[in-house]
Every structure is written in C-alpha cells, then in structure tokens.
Measured scan of single mutants.
Amino acid sequence: PKCKGCFKAIVAGDQNVEYKGTVWHKDCFTCSNCKQVIGTGSFFPKGEDFYCVTCHETKF
C-alpha cells in the first residue's frame, strides 16, 4: 500500500497508522490544523481531516 501523506510505499517494518482502509506512515499522520505528528496518539476525525486533541478542543 501507499501512504496517503507522502504517497510512498509502506513496506514491512514501517510503523504506520490505518484508519478506515487508508494507511499513513506514522510520521505522515498529522493534525490538519497545527501539522504536528499525531502518529499513534489520540485524534478526532472530521470529514477528510484529522485533529490532535489540543486543536480539536480549541477549534470545536
């Protein structure tokens, strides 16, 4: 599969995040607002966007 963030291949051994059939490298899975890496931490999906806890609390 290819990462939705950088469009490069995800190979065995890469740390990745999967959500609803889409996959990202862990470092490519970032907050849509502040761009900080969410990685495998908590996040809030809103449509096609993903927000870290801090930005979600501030924005919504």
Rank of each mutant, 00 (worst) to 15 (best):
K59T: 11
F44K: 03
D14H: 04
K4A: 15
C3L: 07
I10P: 08
P45N: 02
V37A: 08
F43E: 08
T22P: 03
P1T: 15
I10E: 08
S42C: 01
G39V: 12
D49G: 11
T30V: 13
C31P: 01
K8H: 13
C3Q: 06
K8S: 09
H25W: 00
E48F: 03
F44I: 07
G41C: 04
I38E: 02
Y51M: 15
F29C: 13
V17L: 06
F50H: 02
G41A: 12
H25C: 13
T54C: 11
K26N: 02
G13D: 13
S32V: 10
D49P: 03
E48S: 07
G47F: 02
T54G: 09
V17P: 14
G47T: 03
E48P: 06
G39R: 06
K8T: 03
T22K: 04
C28S: 02
P1S: 15
Y51L: 05
K4E: 01
C52W: 00
T30Q: 06
A9R: 04
S42G: 12
T54Q: 15
K35G: 09
E48R: 12
T40E: 14
G41I: 07
C34D: 00
E18P: 15
V23G: 11
T22M: 09
S42Q: 10
T40I: 08
C52T: 01
C3F: 02
T58Y: 08
V53P: 08
S32F: 09
G21D: 13
G5V: 05
G21T: 09
F60R: 07
K46T: 10
C28V: 00
K35P: 13
V11G: 11
E18Q: 12
T58R: 11
T30N: 08
G41F: 04
T58G: 13
F44V: 08
K20I: 05
V37E: 05
F7P: 10
P45A: 09
K26H: 03
T58V: 05
F7N: 05
V23C: 06
T58I: 11
C52R: 01
K8C: 05
C52Y: 00
F7H: 09
E57P: 12
N16K: 14
P1F: 15
F7L: 09
C28I: 01
D49S: 11
G41R: 05
K26T: 13
H56S: 04
V11T: 06
C52P: 05
D27A: 05
G39S: 11
I38H: 02
I10C: 02
G47A: 14
H25D: 03
V23Q: 07
A12H: 10
N16G: 09
C28G: 02
D27F: 03
C28T: 01
G5S: 06
F44E: 02
F44S: 13
H25L: 00
C55I: 00
G21W: 13
H56L: 04
I38M: 13
C52S: 01
G39M: 06
A12I: 04
K4D: 07
G13I: 11
G47N: 06
C6D: 00
C34Y: 00
K2N: 15
G41Q: 09
V17W: 08
K8L: 07
T40H: 13
K46V: 12
F44W: 12
C52A: 01
V23P: 13
F44N: 02
C34M: 00
N33W: 11
C52L: 00
I38K: 02
G47V: 12
H25P: 02
Q15K: 11
N16L: 04
F60I: 04
G13Y: 09
K20T: 09
C52G: 01
D49W: 12
C6T: 01
G47Q: 10
K2S: 15
A9P: 15
E57A: 10
E57D: 06
I10V: 07
V53S: 06
S42V: 07
V11C: 05
Y51T: 06
T30L: 12
F43C: 09
G39K: 07
K20H: 08
F7V: 11
V23S: 10
C3K: 14
P45Q: 02
E48V: 06
T30K: 08
H25V: 00
F60C: 14
K2P: 08
N16H: 02
F50R: 08
G39A: 08
G13K: 10
G41P: 07
C34K: 00
F44T: 13
K4N: 03
K59P: 11
K35E: 04
K4S: 14
A9I: 03
G5D: 14
E48G: 10
V37F: 04
C3N: 01
F50P: 03
T54F: 10
Y51S: 06
V53R: 09
C6W: 00
G41M: 08
D49T: 11
V17T: 10
E18Y: 02
K20V: 06
G39W: 04
D27S: 10
K4P: 15
C31D: 01
I10S: 07
C3V: 04
G13A: 14
V17D: 06
F29Y: 07
G21Q: 15
Y19S: 13
F50S: 04
C34E: 04
C55V: 00
D27P: 13
Y19V: 14
K20S: 11
P45H: 06
C34I: 00
Y19P: 06
Q36H: 11
C3I: 00
C31F: 00
D27M: 13
T40R: 08
C52K: 02
G21I: 07
K4M: 13
P45S: 05
T22S: 14
K46G: 06
I10A: 10
E57I: 00
F29L: 13
D27V: 05
C34T: 00
N16P: 10
P1I: 15
Q15F: 08
P1N: 15
F7Y: 07
K46D: 06
T40Y: 03
K46E: 06
V23M: 13
Q36R: 08
A9K: 04
V23A: 11
C31T: 00
V17I: 09
S32P: 04
G47P: 05
F43V: 13
F7A: 14
P1G: 15
V53L: 06
F43M: 03
K20W: 08
F7D: 00
K20C: 12
V17E: 07
C34G: 00
V11R: 11
P45T: 06
